[in-house]
Amino acid sequence: MARKVLVLGEVRDGFLRNVSFEAIGAAILAADGGEVVGVIVGESIQSFGDELIQYGADRVVTVEDAKLGQYTSDGYAQAILAVIDAEKPEGIIFGHTALGKDLAPRIAGKLNSGLISDVTSIEEAGGNLVFTRPIYSGKAFEKKIVTDGVIFATIRPNNIEPLRKDESRTGAVSSLRVEIKDLRAIIKDVIRKATDGVDLSEAKVVIAGGRGVKSEEGFKPLKELAQVLGGAVGASRGACDANYCEYSLQIGQTGKVVTPDLYIACGISGAIQHLAGMSNSKVIVAINKDPEANIFKIADYGIVGDLFEVVPLLIEECKKLKINA
């Protein structure tokens, strides 16, 4: 059944996020031949419209306003609801990012609609659009359908394939004027801590450290390996509790859930709460000096050894690979 589907293009630090291209991939599945309309909201974002089209959107609507320079749920909700009102889509897809998690439930509330959060795959089955999502932090999965109102979902980064960028694709980029008013919460300051560029939940490679890393200093080689592989650093709660790193790096049932192509666990024992956050990664490598460590039970490849010996060797080998490539 052809549907018109709206996709939010999320701009962060001057770039469209990869998850937005994945969201277009999801929207094309959901549209089933219908139109895919990108929406971009911000201060000066008109120029990003073409890129959404190159990734598969048919056309793009932008809402620009100085009050939308920083994300607030009040401002963004007004802008996006105005677009929804003008476009009357039958489906809406956001990324399940900090922004998507914060905003989507509010918009669903306003539309009096359902919302299927944190979706990892979409298929058309038996006349329904069926969404698969993890429950119990990835210890199980459920398949859901929407039974009332607009079809609305947020998709988890790294799970749905984006289309390949096609620079020859063209489409209309139009802008909608919306009066943004009554912002009830104001962002006074943003303290940058996640400086290393690659966002943990979107990273294709995650190098995670546990209590075995032993100190803040001990994370240095992990950071270097992440840099060489273009990945992000994560951690177990053990490492966070011991103050080796920030809680924002924590992976697991009470931290982030990540599904990178490659997860390298260094000095992590593999507690059930940690596994919940990473066991759906495509390839898992464990480096642990205890051959009995639980993490080896789910690792595709394991090295029994001292991470302070293994990780530097790994950095060297990966660097060689880069040079030869």
Binding site: G114, V130, I135, K143, T147, I298, Y301
Partner: peptide, 21 residues
Amino acid sequence: AAKTKTIEIFLPSKKEAGKVL
């Protein structure tokens, strides 16, 4: 009344232990 419905619950396929070098 719910606006979405769960039609199936399943467990992820069990990961086989891999290769320890």
